[in-house]
Amino acid sequence: MTALQDTVLVLLVLSSFALLGASRLGACIRFVALQGIVTGLLPIAVSGHGPTPRVAVIGATVILIKGFFFPHLLTRAMREAQTRRELQPFVGYVTSLAFGVLALIGSFWLDSRLNLPIHGASDLVVPVALATMIIGLFLIVSRRIAVSQVIGFLVLENGIYAFGVAIVRDVPALIELGILMDVFVAVFVMGIAIYHINREFDHIDTDRLTMLKG
């Protein structure tokens, strides 16, 4: 258990929990930016004896895109939609946090039962990545506002990325950057979708889209 690695992992989980408990969209965007930076630090932290230039470049790209560019896009979407906070999520904040605790316990249990053939860089990476993925999925289904759902998607992606780092440790740079490109396009498309939903209906409450008739 090295201190840097564990601090990074603890921050990763704590930022997901902060997202479960935060109601202001501005705060949510800041937390997801923090999580993006932490995710970028993860490959550098697990690489033990000094990062190779390739790992450093990938880490820096992840930090740049997830820590600064996505938050900027989301802030703009939030400003255009003039939505400051998630008023009535499908699941309340305290219940969400309770679910997060259950997800954490569940992922630790799952990890102890999985018996993965490859051992991760640290004993904690796999359960932390699983918990982050579950929390991300939960955020997508439990929030009403489109911006929060995009944030949930980003959390899910961070979890998958952490899982990949844990299991494979040495992904070719091309694949790594390709995945990053996909996420980038996805967030971009979601930003455009938010803009259009907002322009058509004066709000970004996706729940009310179910009432549309063709």
């Binding site: 408990g21 946090l97 309770a98 997060g100 605790v101 954490l104 904690l124």
Partner: peptide, 22 residues
Amino acid sequence: VPRLLMGALVLAVLAFAFIARF
């Protein structure tokens, strides 16, 4: 206040899970 207390519960459970693992 319950949100704050749930936050504290998250911290405690996380610490417990980490220590139990190690």
